[in-house]
């Protein structure tokens, strides 16, 4: 097994070097174990849970299924890189905390990224649009009720900040 991959990734606005790595490493592994960004979580290794969701060139994807060395020349944003515009938490993050959408919290970072992606593309999603957009994010604790409530709050907050 050769550990001979060297490449540079653009993560959260920073250029990061990956050295002496194995070609089969996923972006999730590289983020967590090589680049000190453990916010993205791994729970299935096959794109069936969404816990590892990151933005790759603006698209929400499962980082467990991105071969890390192919992500060169791309823009990667992880949960650690979401812009809270100077606040402690983003509107989506704050809504999750306030609405009880967090229990064990393992699915949370992936959901936060997926919902940011949704609301950035579609600030006023319908109930079904929300459900479909996060249908790839499994939560085992909440039964999703409080997560829907959190999205609702985030949508309302964005709407209010737009009109004000």
């Amino acid at each position: 097994m050769s550990m001979n991959e060297f490449y540079t990734l653009n993560v959260n606005g920073q250029s990061m070097q990956v050295q002496d790595s194995w070609v089969g490493e996923s972006l999730l592994y590289v983020l967590r174990e090589r680049l000190g960004l453990p916010g993205s979580k791994g729970a299935c290794e096959q794109g069936e849970c969404g816990s590892c969701t990151v933005l790759l060139d603006g698209q929400a994807v499962c980082s467990c299924l991105v071969m890390a060395a192919t992500a060169v020349d791309s823009t990667i944003v992880t949960v650690e890189g979401l812009d809270a515009h100077g606040a402690e938490l983003t509107d989506v993050q704050d809504a999750f905390v306030q609405q009880g959408a967090v229990q064990c919290g393992f699915c949370t970072p992936g959901l936060i990224v997926a919902i940011h992606h949704l609301l950035d593309e579609n600030p006023q999603p319908s109930e079904l649009e929300v459900k479909e957009a996060i249908s790839g994010n499994i939560c085992r604790c909440t039964g999703y009720g409080r997560i829907f409530a959190a999205v609702e709050q985030a949508v309302a907050v964005r709407k209010a900040s737009h009109t004000s």
């Binding site: 070609v23 089969g24 996923s26 290794e45 096959q46 991105v66 071969m67 791309s74």
Partner: peptide
């Protein structure tokens, strides 16, 4: 070759495939 990786990486993550030379088509 690897494009999106959504099939191939499952094979690697589940220990069914040992990649050697990979050609990325993403770009």
């Amino acid at each position: 070759v690897i494009q999106g990786g959504t099939d191939l990486m499952v094979e690697i993550n589940f220990n069914h495939l040992k990649p050697t030379t990979m050609v990325s088509l993403r770009h």
